[in-house]
Each structure stands twice: as C-alpha cells, then as structure tokens.
Amino acid sequence: MTETSVTKKNDLPEVYIDDILMSLKYFTDEHEAHLKIIDPQVCVNCKEKPCIQFCPVGAYRTQDGGTVQIAFQSCVECGTCRVMCPPANVSWKLPRGGFGVSYKFG
C-alpha cells in the first residue's frame, strides 16, 4: 500500500455531524419510524458495526450493552444501511408520503 492508501485513518478530521444536520429540513413522522432494527441481539453480536461509520448522517449509535439505536429522524433516505448492514438487520422503508428529508436546494 502506498502512502496515500486507506490504512491511514488518523488524518480524518473530527466532525460534529449534528451541527451539519442543522442545515437540513425534515418533516418528521411522529407516528411511524421508517427504519427499524429487526433483531437487537443481532447488533449486539455484530462485532464490526460498520453502520456507526458509514451512515452519512450518523443516525446509527451504539447503546450500553452493544445494541444499536437508529435516529430515523436524521435519515436522508440514501439506502446505504439497507445495502451494507452485514447481517441485513435493518428494516428499511421509505417514509410515508410527505415525510422525511426535504431538500431546499438539492
């Protein structure tokens, strides 16, 4: 691997994603979460938990005991977690009509 290769993770700046998400507009569905963990225990057993890293809005957070919680309110409906969760433990639906992220500029 070369010096620009991907193993050098330590030069990534720390980013407070919640500050960045302030720029987004959402219509939050208070009655229905469109994303759900199918079986919490599967997350506990998942050592890798790549969802914590790859979700572009940081919606996946670990809890005490190794479970994973989804802040579905932050979701921008990209689909990455549905495709990349190693044990396919995410129930992924689109928000109901009119709900979810609403880009002002796009």
Partner: peptide, 12 residues
C-alpha cells in the same frame, strides 16, 4: 459503498 465499509470511515 463497499470501499467505504471496508475502510471504516465516516463519509462526512
């Protein structure tokens, strides 16, 4: 997506 997961980095 695959490279992103393998590298274990946050896209933002």
């Amino acid at each position: 997506l695959e490279a992103l997961r393998e590298a274990g980095i946050k896209p933002y």
